[in-house]
Simulated scan of single mutants.
Amino acid sequence: MRPVLLFLFGAHLALLAAEKHSLQYLYTATSGLSNFPQFVTVGIVNGQPFSKYDSNIRRETPSQEWMAKSVGEEYWEQQTQISVVAEKAFINSINVAKERFNQTGGVHTIQRMYGCEWDDQTGATNGFTQYGYDGEDFMILDLKELRYISPVKQGTLTVDKWNINRLHLESDKHYLGTQCIDWLKKYLQYGKSSLEKKVSPQVSLLQKSSSSPVTCHATGFYPSGVTITWMRNGQEHHEDVELGELLPNEDGTFQKTSTITVTPDEWKNNKFSCVVEHQGKTEIGNEIRTNQDPSAPVPIGIIVGVLVSVLLVVIGVAGYMVYKKKNGFKPVSDDDSGSSSSLHNGSDSGSVHSESSNDSTKPIMR
């Protein structure tokens, strides 16, 4: 399964250090998974989930305390209604997708990711919208050309019809380039105290046995930008090194790993060290803290433990497609009408302000 991302994606007033800020939403519908919600949404700002919805609870809820304090009940009621409508369209979409791909049973996923990013130093902005089916690209919005493209023949019919509808294309462009940016800055203001924090990583070298690969594990850092490199006798070493994915922790921080494969003699006769750079600070790991018997469990429970977070559940089910490039996924529906409703909306505590364009349930297959 080819990975697809996002990943990821704020404020004027220089709320955070000069960098790119991002707002994105992930929608995921599934079939064939009895113990997983059929529909899940996650809202993310600067890599930090701030709202969520699933078809079991059927209620939009905050993922961060700062979000719960910043908006009123009207916001959550409106978000819930939007997600309920999108849920129906997404779940119906899977059956249509299976027909188009000539499939019957099995586990299938439809995902959409959309959002925007903003550089608080240069003022540059960017928007992205992508749709995926079973972990593969299905349709992508090219904002520069203002048209949808599809890498698969099953998406050709949809692309042809969508590109004729200039009203929807202009609506998508306006949302991604204007409304999304406005709400990104608003959310950055809401979560300023949390989002502008800087926490250095904790670095550990982990190994299952003396002949196993050595993993450099950096965790608990914020913001997400981190660089992990290996040094051998004072020189950068890139051979037999595998860099892991950036993963979120439940507390809003991040973790990342880099694994090096060397023989016990190589490790013994050379000086290896892991160098982790974050926010101008450097952490170095050169002592293996865990060297267990081969039959003992690998001391990486802290890594897989984060899979309990809603964000990673969504990503995991979709083949971890969303943390690979700055794109996302939309629904597949059997509605041929081309009608559409709102994206996620935003609101202040007292009143509701639309954050949306009009395509959260816009059908892909028709």
Results as ranks from 00 to 15, higher is better:
Val71Asn: 01
Gly350Ile: 12
Thr30Ile: 11
Gly328Val: 08
Phe36His: 07
Thr109Gln: 08
Asp134Phe: 09
Asp119Thr: 00
Pro62Met: 05
Thr219Gln: 14
Ser339Asp: 12
Val4Gln: 12
Val152Arg: 03
Val96Asn: 08
Pro294Ile: 13
Phe50Thr: 04
Tyr114Phe: 05
Val298Glu: 11
Thr263Lys: 07
Lys88Tyr: 02
His353Met: 08
Gln78Asp: 04
Thr80Asn: 01
Asn291Arg: 03
Leu243Ser: 12
Gly316Pro: 00
Ile315Tyr: 07
Thr104Cys: 05
Lys20Asp: 09
Asp336Gln: 15
Ser211Phe: 05
Gln255His: 12
Thr109Asn: 11
Asp240Gly: 09
Cys116Asn: 11
Leu206Cys: 08
Lys144Glu: 07
Pro223Met: 11
Pro331Glu: 04
Asp134Gly: 06
Val159Asp: 03
Ala29Met: 07
Met67Gly: 00
Gln255Asn: 10
Leu146Pro: 00
Val4Ser: 12
Tyr53Gly: 06
Asn327Tyr: 10
Lys208Ser: 09
Ser273Arg: 14
Phe50Gln: 01
Ser211Asp: 14
Ser210Pro: 00
Lys185Ile: 10
Glu117Val: 00
Asp137Gly: 05
Gly220Trp: 11
Leu188Cys: 14
Ser349Asp: 14
Thr229Cys: 01
Leu6Pro: 01
Gly225Phe: 05
Val276Arg: 07
Gly127Ala: 03
Ser210Tyr: 02
Ser341Asn: 14
Gln255Pro: 06
Leu206Asp: 05
Val298Phe: 12
Asp348Gly: 10
Ser193His: 09
